[in-house]
Design a protein around this nucleic acid. Structure first.
Length: 759
DNA sequence: CGAGAATAGTTTTTT
DNA sequence: ACTATTCTCG
């Protein structure tokens, strides 16, 4: 008894009274409204430890659901010292992986293959194009993107094909309903599901197969949901099903941080929760432990401008801190230089003792990262870029993934069409069309169609294919069959190597490296891909590949963020949610960018309010120092246009802003010339010598400080020994031409090529 | 059939 | 600016 009180004290130690309340209220529905920096994650993890150690709930009966793998991983890390081995049986997952796991266990009940493939956006797009072709719709009149987003909207509101077609009131709805129907048929025949299906199908499973639902309802005694403001209708409905037995459901969220309604997140869930569970205990966490008073005041002033809002009073015991620095530069290049320059000054100053990892630069759209990246490279500032062109969406990675998917799901026509002629093997559009036609007529998968066509009994009159293409198809089929037969003999990494070799993909990449600059990078990416695969190889030949593929499908870029890396972080405002940094720069504080033009054009005030919340999220990431920057001109799509300061700047009281950076007329007009020249002087006086840098997505040993000269003997990781024949410096890099002893003459980019001086 | 050129369309945010 | 698709020629 005494011991458990000790334990309880230990778990509750350091929590404020409301946090304690949130941890100790374990029976029945709880809604925690958690302001930014209010110790939300600490509450959730303490609550789990409390449930396990004080209440004595078996860990396998506790489930916590998050939105990103990163949040799930962090939660587990924090729980690890408190739970030890219990951690393994605890269920801490993203919504999507939680569902994927259930579906792979219960696949028989929903008539789906155990090894179903999870289609990502690009796969969905290919499939939809196929759908439109099938049902004779012009993709120019009916953009596949729009149709997909309508379908996604339907699925996240639990509306199936019949539901949608019965609801359609106009031509467009009718078109969507028809596309939806065919889309679903094709997903099934491909043994595939999309992201929304993971939730929707799990919901349907529980609704329609009560004995399965009961299994999970009896299993889970407690359910916690993080970032509840981001849930959609389907996710909330599923959560209710799961916890039906006990109603011990605890949701944590902040309506002011709802920034995903465009992705069907439905803030009404917070209201529904209180009506669905009338006995809900509401706990509001309002003490902020993260930011200075100044930053918090700025955030509060900004968010108060929103009308659709529940009042919440944030406060902090932290001191006033530094004023916010608001500045204006000429264009995005100067903006980026200002950022770098300021960071260099911050790092030099001994009083803060900042590290690179303490600093983040945030922006509205990914395209803005470009100017920042260029400046980082130029000034030798190490950075990690989150998002952008995502690793698993790169062409070469998707190609290899397509081959791997086919090894366990040969019905996946989308993957098959992706690689049937990559690298080129004489199967052109005409041939492919014939194959597709046959597959459709016979209602069989493409691979089955290939078997028919290439079988000896098959008469060519049926398809009208000449002998050469048939031979090409037969060769391709043989490659796939050979590889499939080897999959259980080799470990995952060796298997990937075999695929690379047997399909000619390795050769293809090498050749592309000769002509294209990106070829080098592609080879590097495959290396990186294999090193991730290596972790899954440990699971053995049976489980390794499926687990790897699932993780590839469900991973997001934010999951790769490294907390302690020696680099500044470049990140979108959306992805920054849940993170914190001592120093935050928000760039592009301009009308049309933040708020984004689309929210302005929509004429919908709630879209503007979402933009304001996005800005609020950004500001509240900062612990000590906040910069709000804007450019007078901003370039886009080649051109460049003058811009107007963001309306959000006006929401911030001038008293919180550093006077020396405050521009005249409450920042509405450009700075006076004196300030402008002093800024320019500061920018141009910065050193321009280059030094090592890194980008988060592709790890590479950087050799950029090594200077190559014509005549140097060099060694390349892939091409071997050679001699430099020309050096052509470009803006931030050098193009080096090397005559290799074995591999001929290659043009390489210094920053990318694994090239060293050999003596 | 395949490769490169010309052209059209496109971008907010992403599990 | 960047990509995806269509066109054209060997």
């Amino acid at each position: 008894m005494v011991r458990s009180i000790d334990k309880a004290e230990k778990i509750l130690h350091g929590l404020n009274s409301r946090q304690r309340d949130a941890v100790e209220t374990i029976d029945g529905p709880v809604l925690i409204l958690a302001g930014p920096g209010s110790g939300k994650t600490r509450v959730i993890t303490s609550r789990i430890a409390y449930l396990r150690h004080i209440v004595g709930i078996a860990s396998f009966r506790i489930a916590a659901v998050t939105f990103t793998n990163k949040a799930a991983r962090e939660m587990k890390e924090r729980l690890s010292p408190m739970l030890g081995n219990d951690l393994n049986s605890l269920s801490v997952n993203t919504f999507h992986s939680f569902c994927a796991r259930i579906l792979r266990t219960e696949y028989e009940h929903i008539g789906i293959n155990r090894d179903f493939t999870i289609y990502d956006d690009a796969d969905q797009m290919s499939l939809m194009k196929q759908v439109l072709q099938d049902i004779n719709l012009d993709p120019k009149r009916f953009p596949p993107r729009s149709i997909l987003s309508a379908i996604s909207g339907a699925k996240s509101q639990l509306i199936g094909v019949s539901g949608l077609s019965s609801q359609s009131t106009n031509y467009w709805d009718e078109i969507v309903a028809r596309a939806y129907e065919r889309y679903e048929e094709m997903l099934i025949s491909n043994s595939a599901v999309d992201f929304d299906d993971l939730i929707f199908k799990t919901y349907l499973l529980f609704r329609d197969v009560p004995q399965v639902a009961r299994t999970y309802q009896n299993k889970f005694a407690h359910l916690m949901i993080d970032e509840f403001q981001d849930t959609n209708i389907a996710q909330y409905a599923l959560a209710k099903q799961v916890i039906q037995e006990t109603s011990n459901i605890c949701v944590v969220g902040d309506p002011d941080q709802s920034i995903y309604t465009w992705r069907n997140a439905d803030i009404r869930n917070i209201l529904s929760f209180q009506t669905d569970y009338p006995s809900t205990k509401i706990i509001s966490l309002e003490e902020n432990y993260r930011s200075t008073q100044t930053i918090l005041d700025a955030a509060t002033s900004l968010i108060k401008t929103n009308t659709q809002r529940v009042e919440k009073d944030l406060w902090t015991k932290n001191g006033k801190g530094n004023p916010i620095i608001v500045s204006e530069t000429y264009d995005e290049r100067e903006e980026a230089q200002f950022v770098i320059n300021e960071i260099q000054t911050l790092l030099k100053s001994p009083k803060n003792n900042y590290n690179l990892s303490d600093i983040a630069v945030m922006y509205r759209v990914n395209a803005q990262s470009r100017a920042l990246e260029e400046s980082c490279v130029r000034y030798g500032m190490p950075y990690q870029l989150i998002g952008g062109l995502k690793f698993y969406q790169r062409q070469e990675i998707k190609d290899v993934v397509a081959y791997l998917r086919l090894m366990i799901n040969p019905d996946d026509d989308i993957s098959l069409t992706r690689i049937i002629n990559t690298p080129t093997r004489g199967i052109g559009q005409r041939t492919l069309d014939q194959v597709l036609r046959m597959a459709r007529n016979k209602e069989i998968s493409i691979i089955s169609a290939l078997r028919v066509i290439t079988s000896e009994k098959h008469k060519k009159e049926e398809t009208g294919l000449a002998s050469r293409p048939v031979k090409a198809l037969a060769d391709f089929l043989k490659i796939l069959d050979d590889l499939t037969s080897k999959k259980s003999e080799l470990n995952l990494v060796d298997f990937i190597d075999l695929i690379m070799e047997r399909t000619g993909y390795q050769r293809y990449l090498m050749d592309s490296a000769n002509v294209e600059r990106r070829g080098e990078e592609r080879i590097e990416n495959i290396k990186e891909f294999k090193s991730t695969a290596a972790e899954f190889a440990l699971l053995g030949q049976q489980e390794g590949l499926p687990s790897f593929l699932e993780s590839v499908s469900l991973i997001s870029d934010i999951d790769n963020l490294k907390e302690r890396s020696e680099a500044i972080t470049l990140i979108t405002l959306h992805q920054a949610k849940g993170l914190e940094f001592p120093v935050v720069f928000i760039v592009g504080m301009e009308e049309g960018l933040l708020p984004h033009i689309r929210s302005i054009d929509s004429g919908d005030p709630s879209e503007l309010e979402e933009e304001r919340r996005l800005c609020y999220v950004g500001i509240t990431r900062a612990k000590e120092q906040l910069y709000l920057l804007r450019a007078f001109r901003r370039g886009f799509r080649g051109g460049s246009e003058p811009s107007v300061p963001s309306r959000f700047l006006v929401d911030i009281p001038p008293s919180l802003i550093s006077p020396e950076t405050l521009t005249s007329e409450n920042r509405k007009v450009t700075r006076n010339s004196e300030q402008k020249t002093s800024l320019r002087n500061r920018l141009t006086s910065t050193s321009t010598k280059s030094s090592p840098y890194s980008s988060g997505n592709v790890k590479k040993e950087v050799t950029s400080q090594v200077l190559f000269q014509v005549g140097d003997k060099v060694n390349h990781d892939i091409f071997g020994k050679g001699m430099v024949v020309s050096v052509k410096p470009s803006r931030e890099d050098s193009e080096i031409t090397v005559a290799f002893d074995g591999a001929g003459i290659k043009r390489l980019l210094q920053s990318l090529a694994p090239l060293n001086k050999s003596e």
